[in-house]
């Protein structure tokens, strides 16, 4: 309770700050406003929430997530997220951090998958979802380390290539694939800067800054949320959380973003 109240207060302060932000970014260099905000990233608040959720005994099976293997052994979090997506033998599939969380929260803690998926992406201005906080906490344990998504299992190679294919695949009312908005430097949709993800630097920015605090929503957002939002702009139907479509794209982008230094939560508009 005490905790929630302090978050509420902090969020109030952020709201004020965010209102001032557009004025700040009127100058030539939009990134100045961004950098100033990063120094005091409100997303940090969710790291502790995620940590508590991680060690608490929860769910029908009253278990913590300490037995969950994120690729480096049960409960070993140091550097684990920097190596995801990766192949997991126990599910025989490539999983990104969020789909791995779904696996462990259903198998170890006994949560219902449907329920988790339904709540995975929180409402703007809410206190966020469990998965958002957990994903941030776990990823923060890779801060300062290099992204290192290796391809060694056949299914990892397959995922990478599928992700590449999907990045260029155009369909729907607007003929969009990802590359139409993320394939050239210095492009904008209205005033929103588009990262060129076909460049190493662009892929590195993506691979090292999610989950991120989203100023416009006052919550921490994950990669699956971001893909969800882009797909919505592309006029495609509803992206299903944790399916191979987004895992493939994430594998493609993160592998190409190798050697970037992890720093989460990122701060996004």
């Amino acid at each position: 309770m005490e905790k929630m109240r302090s978050i509420g207060l902090a969020l109030g302060a952020v709201a004020l700050f965010a209102m001032a932000a557009p004025a700040m970014s009127q100058g030539n260099d939009l990134s100045v406003g961004r950098k100033m905000l990063v120094e005091d990233n409100p997303g940090d608040l969710w790291i502790d929430i995620g940590k508590e959720l991680f060690y608490q005994k929860r769910g029908p099976k009253k278990a913590s997530l300490e037995q969950c293997d994120f690729g480096l052994g049960a409960g070993k979090l140091e550097g684990a997220a920097a190596r995801m997506p990766r192949y997991f033998a126990d599910t025989d599939r490539v999983e990104d951090l969020e789909s791995r969380l779904l696996t462990c929260m259903t198998r170890l803690q006994g949560f219902d998958r449907k329920g988790l998926v339904k709540q995975a992406i929180s409402r703007p201005r809410s206190k966020g979802s469990d998965i958002e906080a957990l994903a941030l906490y776990i990823t923060s344990r890779s801060n300062g380390m290099k992204v290192n998504v290796t391809l060694s299992h056949q299914k990892e190679y397959d995922m990478y290539k599928a992700g590449e294919y999907l990045f260029y695949r155009r369909s729907g009312q607007t003929d969009f694939g990802c590359v139409q908005c993320h394939g050239e430097p210095d492009k904008r949709i209205r005033l929103q800067d588009l990262i060129n993800m076909t460049s190493k630097a662009g892929a590195q920015e993506v691979a090292s800054t999610w989950p991120a605090y989203r100023g416009a929503h006052y919550v921490v957002r994950t990669m699956q949320w971001r893909l969800n939002d882009c797909v919505w702009q592309m006029r495609l139907p509803d992206l299903e959380y944790g399916t191979d479509y987004s895992i493939a794209l994430t594998t493609f982008l993160n592998h190409r973003g190798n050697d970037a230094v992890m720093q989460v939560p990122g701060f996004k508009r």
């Binding site: 695949r169 509803d238 299903e240 399916t243």
Partner: peptide, 16 residues
Amino acid sequence: TTKQMAEKMVFEGFTY
């Protein structure tokens, strides 16, 4: 093979 796998992901990755 890539095409076959990726196309399957498209039609299994969305609710529509």
